[in-house]
Amino acid sequence: MCLAIPVQVKEIKNNNRAVVDNNGVNFEASTNLVENLKVGDFVLIHAGFIIEILTRDDAREKLALLEEFYQKTGRGKNGRE
């Protein structure tokens, strides 16, 4: 039920709607739930609403977790990755 998919913003309209692109298929979604939306942003869509703007990389916390993983297991950087 809480299914949401990542899409890219193509155009922002003036009626609280935006045109988004899902692998070449364009459709409209509501922008009511987000602020500071820009064309080109990757966003998460749930039932016709943009619910969050995605960050491009998974950033700090993920890197820290992986670092811990490498240290504990000796795998990853020089191992089987």
Binding site: L33, V34, E35, L44, I51, E52, L54, T55, R56, D57, D58, A59, R60, E61, K62, L65
Partner: peptide
């Protein structure tokens, strides 16, 4: 409580949506 979905989830979430 860890966050392993940082590309989407922030500590405070989406306050505009949550407050609604």
């Amino acid at each position: 409580v860890l966050n392993n979905y940082e590309r989407v989830v922030r500590k405070n979430g989406n306050p505009k949506a949550f407050n609604l």
